[in-house]
Nucleic acid binder design. Structure first.
Lengths: 137, 137
DNA sequence: AATTATAGTTATAATAATTATAATATATTG
DNA sequence: CAATATATTATAATTATTATAACTATAATT
């Protein structure tokens, strides 16, 4: 077969220094199986259960944080009610539709921001998030 | 005196169609007394108590939402753990220092963003938030 | 000014997402 | 395979926020 999702996930976890447990492998496969994704803990947990992976919500939370720590995920802060995690860790931006909670990537390549002041004295730049809020019309 | 914070706040509330109650007047004075501010409900409540205004946390939450509804405040989503409200409702952006939870305005006048794709079909633009995340160094 | 109706405030309980805990299970290493 | 280190789990705890329902203040009307 062309792709080998199992060993890809396994290598990904090894590279991050995370033990390839049943649960982490399952999550990695769900997350990186096909294209980039934006998930909440609840969503991912529901998906795992639907795929008959036995995993607790606590482990989903733990894994999301560990993956983020390891640079495999990035958190996107757009909704005060829940935390989103993005499998795309390249610099980029987002559309966010608040009504149905859907995030969509905006490639970072073409976007440029001019006219920003220098960061305040004693601080350094960590990153720039652009959230384009949209609604159905 | 040069400024008359009392009647300013009163007029502001009247204009928004909100009854100028003791509590709302006190909050308006704290919020709009001198320059723009970024507050959380807890912070504002603590400030009010420190200023010997007797007000419950529930009323602070209610008022923040009513003020926001009335266009007197704008919510800034930057921290998954708490909700910030900004007295500056003009289009503008923010520096955010996660470690100490401090927000700082970036004037919207000089900032321009190019290369953003058109909004997805069936949606309309609601607003663009730029968050420049910084940390102490 | 007194009365009535409306709206606001409050203490408290409820909610919901997330995080901590401590017992159990699994994976790795020698 | 035994010993050790690390993960997972169910559950409880935590935290910010929102809902509830009794009470109080404000505004409108007489």
């Amino acid at each position: 077969m062309a792709t080998r999702p199992y060993s890809e996930s396994l290598e990904r976890l090894r590279a991050a220094g995370l033990r390839p447990t049943r649960q982490r492998l399952a999550l990695a496969r769900l997350l990186y199986g096909r294209g980039h994704r934006h998930v909440t803990a609840e969503q991912l947990h529901a998906e795992a259960l639907a795929a008959t992976v036995r995993i607790s919500l606590a482990t989903v939370y733990n894994s999301l944080h560990q993956f983020t720590e390891a640079g495999m995920l990035r958190e996107v802060v757009v909704d005060p009610a829940r935390r989103y995690f993005d499998t795309n860790v390249e610099p980029h931006h987002h559309f966010f539709m608040a009504t149905d909670g859907v995030l969509q990537d905006i490639s970072g390549k073409d976007v440029s921001i001019t006219g920003l002041p220098a960061v305040p004295a004693g601080t350094e730049l960590q990153g720039i998030d652009v959230i384009v809020r949209i609604r159905r019309n």
